[in-house]
Design a protein around this nucleic acid. Structure first.
Length: 376
RNA sequence: GGGGGGAUACCAAAGCGGCCAACUGGGGCAGACUGUAAAUCUGUUGUCGUACGACUUCGGAGGUUCGAAUCCUCCUCCCCCCA
């Protein structure tokens, strides 16, 4: 993987760059659609390519390990072959499931024992075997196994957790550096900054992660219950420490406003389930604010959802029709909404990139944040 | 012609003397969702009021009772069975 930093904004920390992988180039800032179990829910690969034009999507180690399982993935020749996605893939390590499935896992120094949410069977995840699994999945970018503590974690817990994540990181790096990619293209390994909502922990963690000298770095443990101001504060501290010539990935974030503010703070890569999950539940993101497409007020509105988002949903269908599909429980509704939302997210980050390259990012961002805040 | 069963809120359907403004489902309306246990979950749905509460409801009209969606009488309408 290579990262080229093309331009840094004068008035903010925003950057435009380009990541090169063996599965294509990724212009940054970028938003990566989440495809947890090897599928961006409800969306075909061809629409991800042609409509949404995503250069990279996510997969999840925990979920893919449980289903379809390593045998199938290995036999398929990796996830790219399995799901027919020929562009880049990043896999989360299962660190988020340490948080989201905390009630069915036990942590110790060695790793995490999960009780499968599918059949209750027990599975051990360690910093080492999570690297092995991601080798088998064949993601272009693989993530360190971390503990993502809740946003309201007390200091002592956050400190211990961060230290554990650091020890796990050493082990993960060691396994990564002593193993090989399986399918003839290269993989890279991103470590993850933790530290919950505490400045000193974030600072220590960022310094530690920077010292590991990997090709890119991630910021985890945010947007997990802490106030937004705290999140921004943590990003600012961490980004003042992480190297500028490497991509910075803010994991799991977020709303369109979160993304613009974080770009402004120097983040290059994002992922979030919001455009797909909320889209399936009838929430549409537009340049002029949020729409709940199920609302009665759209019943007779035959205009497009958004005139700025370039995709089939917007160019073909009206709000009234989308509302009808949702109200009637037609599966096409969630699918079209997901296409729209992802197209909008990708449009937004491409637009941000354009503005950074133009040297007009800061004022554009301030204007966009105001528009995005509306509820239509 | 004879016999039987029904009518409850937008729909379906419980309730069969007080704990009933009325279970439950659907529908309607609204909300939530941030490295996906989610095409899921929550609230609300007689009227007025933020609320305590007040007022009008269980086909219609009368009646019994301290008290009726629930019991009685008559009326209207619907369904089923036998001729």
């Amino acid at each position: 993987m290579k990262f080229l930093l093309q331009k840094t904004d004068i008035e903010s920390q925003a950057r435009a760059g380009e990541i090169e992988t063996d599965h294509g180039k990724i212009e940054t800032p970028v938003f990566m659609p989440v495809g947890t179990i090897g599928s961006v829910k409800g969306i075909q690969v061809k629409d991800l390519e042609d409509q949404i034009n995503a250069p990279i999507i996510l997969g999840n180690t925990y979920h893919l390990y449980l289903r379809p399982g390593l045998e199938v993935l290995k036999q398929a020749g990796g996830l790219h072959k399995f799901n027919a996605w020929e562009r880049a893939i990043l896999t989360d390590s299962g660190g988020f499931q340490v948080f989201s499935l905390s009630h069915r896992r036990k942590l110790d120094e060695k790793g995490a024992v999960f009780q499968s949410h599918i059949d209750g069977s027990k599975h051990i995840f360690t910093p080492e075997n999570v690297v092995d699994t991601q080798r088998i999945i064949g993601a272009d970018i693989i993530m360190a196994f971390d503990e993502c503590p809740p946003g309201d974690s007390p200091y002592n817990y956050a400190r211990k957790s961060t230290e554990l994540t650091h020890r796990w990181l050493i082990r993960g790096i060691n396994r990564f550096d002593n193993s090989d990619a399986l399918y003839g293209y290269s993989q890279t390994f991103f470590p993850i900054v933790q530290g919950a909502g505490f400045k000193d922990l974030r600072k220590q963690s960022a310094e530690f992660i920077a010292s590991c000298n990997r090709e890119g770095n991630a910021i985890g443990g945010l947007a997990v219950g802490e106030p937004e101001e705290v999140m921004y504060e943590m990003i600012e501290i961490v980004n003042s420490i992480l190297p500028t010539h490497k991509p910075r990935y803010l994991m799991g974030v977020g709303t369109p406003v979160n993304i613009l503010e974080s770009i402004s703070l120097g983040v290059d890569m994002f992922d979030c389930v919001m455009p797909t999950r909320n889209g399936r539940n009838g929430m549409l993101f537009t340049a002029n604010g949020i729409i709940n497409i199920r609302n009665e007020k759209w019943k007779h509105d035959f205009s497009p959802i958004d005139t700025e988002t370039p995709c089939i949903t917007d160019s073909t269908y009206s709000k009234a029709y989308l509302r009808h599909l949702f109200v009637a429980g037609e599966m096409l509704g969630p699918q079209l909404a997901s296409i729209h939302n992802l197209s909008f997210y990708l449009w937004l980050v491409r637009e941000a990139r354009k503005q950074i390259l133009n040297g007009n990012f800061a004022s554009w961002k301030n204007q966009m944040v105001k528009r995005l805040a509306a509820r239509l």
